[in-house]
Design a protein around this nucleic acid. Structure first.
Length: 118
DNA sequence: TTTTTGACATGTG
DNA sequence: TCACATGCCAAAA
């Protein structure tokens, strides 16, 4: 089974991990990095996902910051778009503290409830 | 081989 | 709670 796992680049491994994230669950960049074999390469995870993720195949919208927030200039069309996608899958979001400041910017994923467990 | 670059993580103030 | 600075790692040039 595992024969050329180490031959594939780190980015390729990242795609494999992200693809395994079940619907309605989210993972952090650090978590994906750890599952890919590099617990400290969380930065590269984001770089790999933005490089050329097969649209529609790799659910990169299920990867968020450890804080529960997401990248500002997201490639899906904005953080709002990502929040809509996750909410549609059943992911629980926590609204901003004071009602509604800057739209989706304050919204964060409830990692305590929706964190994906490998 | 060295430098540069990132959709990060963590620690302080 | 937020803002800023530092550390980390892997890939491309």
């Amino acid at each position: 089974m595992g024969h050329d796992d180490g031959r594939r680049s780190f980015g390729e491994r990242v795609y494999g991990v992200v693809r395994r994230i079940p619907r309605g669950r989210v993972a952090t960049y650090g978590q994906v990095a750890a599952l890919a074999g590099a617990p400290r390469a969380a930065r590269f995870v984001g770089f790999a996902l933005h490089a050329n993720p097969e649209p529609g195949v790799i659910p990169c919208h299920r990867v968020v910051f450890r804080d529960g927030s997401m990248a500002p200039g997201f490639a899906f069309g904005g953080p709002e778009r990502q929040r809509a996608l996750l909410e549609a899958e059943g992911v629980v979001f926590v609204p901003p503290p004071d009602g509604e400041p800057a739209g989706a910017a304050g919204w964060r994923v409830d990692l305590d409830r929706c964190r994906w467990e490998a």
